[in-house]
Design a protein around this nucleic acid. Sequence first.
DNA 1: GCGTCCAGGTCTACC
DNA 2: GGTAGACCTGGACGC
Length: 337
Amino acid sequence: MLRQGAEVYKATITATGASLVRLEKNFSFVLSPKAPYNFELTAKKPAGWDLFTPFEVFEEGTMWTALHVDGMLVGLKLKSTEETDSPRISVTAFLAREPDDKEETIKGILAEKLGVNDELSQFYGFARRDPILKHAVDDLYGMHDTLGGSVFDLAILTICLQMAPLKRSEQMMECLVSRYGRVAEFDGRRVAAWPVPSEISVVSIKELESRCKLGYRAKYVIQLAKILEGGAFPTLEDLARLPAEESKRRLMELPGIGDYSADIINPRAGFPIDAWSVDVFGKLFFGREPKNARDAIERVKKEGIRRWGRWSWMAFFYVAQDLENLSKKLNVKLRLQ
DNA sequence: GCGTCCAGGTCTACC
DNA sequence: GGTAGACCTGGACGC
């Protein structure tokens, strides 16, 4: 038996150590996002950013994914039933037990995470007057920003990205998910979800160091788990309602979370420049990659915020998803992720 | 095969 | 308040 808050699951252990949980109850509903809304671009972003977990599956317009909502493991089958200008998303949510009074909670949180009520028209009006963004919004018309599964998921992501090549970051994350996460079995699929804080807070630093090769990051991940398992820290949805500066300040109180990581986690705010994106935006802004990437981070970040102001995050998001097209249209070679 | 370098940042001690 | 140096690990690279 697994216990998570009030939730108790019947579970078996998979070969990797993750718990397999069968989600046999389900309910369905339809979301009607504000147009334009392109479900495929929003759910399966061109740069490969995950919606909720690295193990989700997208086939022929349908997404199977899994996350924790209000302490419950939820499997999701998402499918677009209409076009970008009259969008509708068909959702089936799978749970281990009857949803009872949780249906409205799940509907509300999912709507917020999928950005169905977010208005793109103001950003598009701004972007169409910008020499770089006008191409990106044309290429990715209807792509909405989404909130990840949880602060813990995104904090693990950013900590694994620190001081490591992308391939090694992926190895660390896959190990954490496959050994300490839960595998949701539903609709004939198996999807591994990120671990919850209470599953990591009881693991020793030495175990994380040796099993998942996290190195110095192990202590940050465990400290984070201990802070976040209490539920006192704001959720992503809470942070999205705070002023961006306040939300960032709260995030930077967390261990291992500095300026860059807070900008990644902070919902719909920030301009997260790192050793990769400094090359991309350095080329776009100044026509060349900076000689010393780390020294140029502050300069490139200031320029992005100066140009794009309140739309800095959306500008970053759209450019990061459109590098291949922008390389051709602007005739610059941009380093893909 | 072996040694060296360094990577999608953050923290801390020191000045 | 500003900044240099340490931090895990493993893949890439040169020899």
